[in-house]
Each structure stands twice: as structure tokens, then as C-alpha cells.
């Protein structure tokens, strides 16, 4: 039996008919075309599928789509646009924090959750917040630098 669900995605309420076994990741990518969120390991280890679920980062491959009914989801597409990128997106670009780019959407979402709660994180806090997001290309140094710099940029723009 399919369920009709309503999810607030990137600020906009959407409805979908989903089978119980459909994951939130499949719903986002296959029904709604939000392919920015990636499928990496399909078992909650790599973080490529990270989205904000009611403001908290979760692995969307481990959330049943039916469970998103009535909840709010933010994906990388909801962070910024080409004209107005999120400070994190600009910082990732400027710091060369992206190589193949496959981990970047999940990294950005985890980093956003961190900076929303803690605009001035220490390096250790950044590393802990990103521990669930694996990168196989760059190493994490530039990613950590980018998050730090985005935090500073966000803070100064608030002032």
C-alpha cells in the first residue's frame, strides 16, 4: 500500500505517493529530481546522503520516506543558488575543499548544521561534526579550513 505524504523540502511543501520501503534518499533523488544528495554506501557509513531533517543532519538512506511525513527536509539544493551561494558553498570553492565533489553535498549539510548551532567552532568541533562524512580525495584539511572560514564570514555578515 502506498502512502501519501507531505514533506517541506527546501522551504516548500511537496506531496508524494511512496511505498513503505522507499527511503527518503530515493524520494528526493528519484521522485523529486533532487540529485544533489548522493548515494554512497547505502548503509549510513559515508554521509554522502546527509540532509537536514527538522534541522538535524541524518543519513537519508536510513530514513524511510513515510517517516518524513509532516517534517522539514533541507538538501544541498536548499542552501544557496549560483547568484547567492551559501557562505559555506563559497568557502568550499575558495579553499579548494572539493575534488571529485561527491562528498561535498553531505559535507556542506553537516557543516551547516554545525554552524547553525555553533558559529565559531574549534577545529576539533568541526572534525567531530564531519566525522560521519567520508571524503576519499582531498583529505579533510581544506574542508576543515573552509568550514572555519565560512563560520567567520557568516558571523561578520550578521554584525
Amino acid at each position: 500500500m502506498a502512502f501519501t505524504i507531505k514533506v517541506k523540502v527546501n522551504g516548500e511543501w511537496k506531496t508524494a505517493d511512496v511505498e513503505p520501503e522507499m527511503t527518503l534518499l530515493e524520494l528526493l533523488r528519484e521522485q523529486w529530481g533532487l540529485t544533489g544528495t548522493k548515494l554512497g554506501c547505502d548503509e549510513g557509513d559515508c554521509g554522502a546522503c546527509t540532509v537536514l531533517f527538522d534541522g538535524k543532519p541524518v543519513n537519508s538512506c536510513l530514513v524511510l520516506a513515510v517517516r518524513a511525513d509532516g517534517h522539514e527536509v533541507v538538501t544541498v539544493e536548499g542552501l544557496g543558488t549560483a547568484e547567492r551561494p551559501h557562505p559555506l558553498q563559497s568557502a568550499f570553492e575558495q579553499h579548494g575543499a572539493v575534488q571529485c565533489g561527491f562528498c561535498a553535498p553531505g559535507m556542506l549539510i553537516s557543516a551547516k548544521a554545525l554552524l547553525d548551532a555553533n558559529p565559531e567552532p574549534t577545529e576539533q568541533e568541526i572534525r567531530e561534526a564531519l566525522a560521519g562524512n567520508l571524503c576519499r580525495c582531498t583529505g579533510y584539511t581544506k574542508i576543515v579550513e573552509a568550514v572555519k572560514s565560512a563560520g567567520r564570514a557568516m558571523k561578520s555578515s550578521v554584525k
Binding site: 549510513g44 554521509g47 541524518v58 561534526a129 566525522a131 560521519g132
Partner: peptide, 9 residues
Amino acid sequence: VGAVQTRNL
């Protein structure tokens, strides 16, 4: 336990 994402779920 796990990482941030798994601890949230």
C-alpha cells in the same frame, strides 16, 4: 556511537 547523523536517528 557512530557519527552525528547516526546519533540523530
